[in-house]
């Protein structure tokens, strides 16, 4: 017995290709399992029982950049880490998105010194900045929702 038999007649939904693809992208956006510093702990909280990121189809954290769509730069990026971060970004398949989580990743935060890159946007293009030091899990979820809104506005014409 197939799905139709169990659920009854689901009927037909007509939509545009754009909307269907964008919907698919937002509902199964796999983040990369990549924590740098303090924010990574809050990212773990977001994943865990109370905040439960899997409600948004994102419970599957991929340790390999080849399998992930979203890079959450969680924490301060040092000058030693910067080339590694860029390499990871280059290894991700298109379409790829970057969330800069926390003040340190967004602008250097309180660490305005020799070791820290003043904003990860100097290394990889960032889609959404999340403020906070570290941001609460709700803030990160809001950042992800904002990214979803952005993804929904993507046009087929721009992909080529």
């Amino acid at each position: 017995m197939g799905v139709a038999g169990k659920l009854g007649n689901l009927g037909v939904v007509t939509t545009t290709l754009e909307a269907a693809i964008n919907w698919g992208r937002t509902k199964s956006m796999w983040p990369m399992l990549f924590g740098l510093a303090c924010c990574a702990i809050e990212m773990m909280s977001t994943q865990a029982s109370v905040y439960d990121l899997s409600r948004f189809g994102m419970e599957l954290m991929r340790a390999s950049p080849r399998q992930s769509d979203l890079m959450i730069v969680a924490g301060r990026v040092t000058r030693k880490m910067a080339p590694v971060l860029r390499q990871l970004y280059d290894q991700m398949p298109d379409p790829k998105y970057v969330i800069s989580m926390g003040d340190c990743a967004s602008c250097g935060g309180i660490f305005n010194n020799y070791a820290i890159v003043q904003g990860v946007d100097e290394i990889v293009p960032v889609d959404v900045y999340v403020a906070g030091c570290p941001p609460r899990p709700e803030q990160l979820i809001h950042g992800i929702m904002t990214l979803h809104e952005k993804v929904k506005t993507q046009r087929i014409a721009d992909w080529a």
Binding site: N112, Q118, G119, E122
Partner: peptide
């Protein structure tokens, strides 16, 4: 290693110099 901090009054100036990826 002090970098210039971006405020609203010097937003454009820092923005122009910042090496965006």
């Amino acid at each position: 290693g002090y970098e210039q901090v971006q405020f609203s009054f010097n937003f454009d100036e820092v923005n122009r110099l910042k090496p965006y990826a």
